[in-house]
Design a protein around this nucleic acid. Sequence first.
DNA 1: AATGAATGAGACTTCATTCAT
DNA 2: AATGAATGAAGTCTCATTCAT
Lengths: 221, 221, 221, 221
Amino acid sequence: MPRNAPPKAQTQVERRQKSEQALLDAAASLIAERGVEQTSLAKIGERAGASRGLPTHHFKSKDALVARLARRSQDRVIEATRNVFEHGEKVRDDIPALDVLRTMLDTYLELFQHPTTEERALIVMWGATFPSEASIDGMLEADQRSYDGLADLIQRGKQDGSIRCDIDARASAVAFFGMMRGVAALVLTESDFQDMHHVRSTCDAWIVGALAPTPTSDGSG
Amino acid sequence: MPRNAPPKAQTQVERRQKSEQALLDAAASLIAERGVEQTSLAKIGERAGASRGLPTHHFKSKDALVARLARRSQDRVIEATRNVFEHGEKVRDDIPALDVLRTMLDTYLELFQHPTTEERALIVMWGATFPSEASIDGMLEADQRSYDGLADLIQRGKQDGSIRCDIDARASAVAFFGMMRGVAALVLTESDFQDMHHVRSTCDAWIVGALAPTPTSDGSG
Amino acid sequence: MPRNAPPKAQTQVERRQKSEQALLDAAASLIAERGVEQTSLAKIGERAGASRGLPTHHFKSKDALVARLARRSQDRVIEATRNVFEHGEKVRDDIPALDVLRTMLDTYLELFQHPTTEERALIVMWGATFPSEASIDGMLEADQRSYDGLADLIQRGKQDGSIRCDIDARASAVAFFGMMRGVAALVLTESDFQDMHHVRSTCDAWIVGALAPTPTSDGSG
Amino acid sequence: MPRNAPPKAQTQVERRQKSEQALLDAAASLIAERGVEQTSLAKIGERAGASRGLPTHHFKSKDALVARLARRSQDRVIEATRNVFEHGEKVRDDIPALDVLRTMLDTYLELFQHPTTEERALIVMWGATFPSEASIDGMLEADQRSYDGLADLIQRGKQDGSIRCDIDARASAVAFFGMMRGVAALVLTESDFQDMHHVRSTCDAWIVGALAPTPTSDGSG
DNA sequence: AATGAATGAGACTTCATTCAT
DNA sequence: AATGAATGAAGTCTCATTCAT
């Protein structure tokens, strides 16, 4: 063996990773149900089918665990919206930016039509960042990245002609992101919105109405 | 009251109400800072300049106190948006519904440009309702009322001609309410949005684009 | 009532002070038995005949409780040595300093012949200050005061003629204090020193030999 | 082992001993800093540059490790004081007992003028034996041996004429040992005793004054 | 020989609530 | 009306120890 690669570490590492995923799954479901503060490390361990002490053992602290979960949840949601476009390894650069935005929002809301425990947990953790002194590490940074990505996307749309030129990219990103999260949270809270289909198409219409070039200009001539 | 009319009966009541308001103020600021769970009754009492036992004495339980605060905060915000229209005791029935919606959203966002402790507390409490099992008494009901009011208003707009006829009133209310709350929360979290002015005008444009009758439709005859 | 003396606070205060003494007594006995670190707040509460939460409720933290105990224990020991001289309110300024020192040490060691729980706790807490990062608030400061008092006393002895002039007061205070504490600790540790009587007279002889003016100078003539 | 004779069999043992010393060094420094109870096996392993599990692997239990360290520390201090006399393999039988005692104490205190981590750890462990139920294996036994040795030495001094005949050997041993340890502990605690030189000469004077034959007795003849 | 994953007991502390004053 | 003493449950985190690798 050229390097000091430990031959048996494989299984050790496997065990650790398996535990970690189980713990994060348990944490996600508990947080979705009761919120961050009401979820104790002991309960996470128990629901994961492990000991009460394991969560601390793995993540050193509750904050670290929640931060880890926040990142994982956001990655998963982002990946889910991305998968709509990239079935193979296709990139989406050739798709009009507005279409990307529309699909993104629609996919997002579709997720929350029958939300898994992890999607709900993501919104719950978002809610936990509202107090001024609270900060879930990784949540805010990832949000910032999402917001930056949206602003870039909108800017690109202004160049590819799918988005009107007279709008403010950054402000529109805030409006878009805010509506996405806000509507998702509302839907989660009031579980009697069974007309989710209407909500989705309405939101889609809002985006088009706000960002698409005015149809009169090209058709009226 | 017939017997031995207490000379300062009013003062007694006054004092009680004064205490109550002080306690709610203290609770609002603490909740805005640290969240609902991290705010203890003892700290509320202390910040209100009273004893540790007073909050329990007045509100019987923490849940009751938070519920009371939730209602007060929502009332205040609603009142703030209403005041724009009713300087005397005027009603707003003669104003086009779309204008009411636009002003409402703009006023709301203006509040969060320099949010007081109470507005932030409201959003924090909203975030606390995201877990499926959590419920802040009075929070969801008031939201439901707000949502119903919005749906009615939109419906009215469809009749007074300020809002397009082909839109779904209830779904649009969700989109409107979601954007309002979502953008407010985003602004609260990322304090570096100093271009709030752009955000407000952008949101206004979104509403107009989504709800206003298409300019071609009224001109085409 | 001239002052705002609360009429019923009396009993409240009494209750608090009673609890406090009981807690400190319990803490002293537990610390004497098992040491500072091995004594838990829960056990203190239980031994005091109270709840597990009371110690924290009273003293806010374990450190504060231990600090409080350290001060009380030192005060009591100092008072015990002082009582030998002041049966009424006599002061000891007229007693030769050397005699004061001798009586002080002898009384101290006598205490440790059949040490109460509190005296042992004092030595245990002294031992807990040995780690460089550990600090029991109040312990070191009180020790410093004791040491300063000893140095002053020795200095006075050099003036009243009971102590030789060629000795260093501060260094002698260290030797005296060190021997006092060290012998006490040794006696505590090795419980089979039943010849405590010899130890006491030996220590007395050491002091006299070290500090008294050489007997040859006055008697040999 | 029959097959593929390990070429570094000796290195195996060496390595083990090297690990052990590294672990004890790490333990000594940690105990000197934070005390016995606050020192965890995991931290010892880490500071020794090894794994968290190594301390347990080597010493089976924390008590065993501490006992091992106590013995090593005492051996080293004893050896240090002994080295002053035996530069080769000379024994000290021909040196007057009082001189041995004086040198012993002076060397001891010199060690604590700039104490290494191990000397401080020794005192810390001594302090950890003060609680009545606590016992660091090997600590008390070694102390007892030291004390016995001192008593024997004093007894010998009474025969070789360097020590007065009318003193009690065992009680004097207690006084000597107590002063030695007590002054050392004091010096460790109050790090501002920079006049250590005076303390050392003062202690020396105390011993001489207490144990040496009175100058009149030998000069009067 | 050595690592580190896992356990479970126990520590300190916070806190809502009850109750005497 | 108001205070604050007291309780006991629960939370996070530390740690010695066991065990699989």
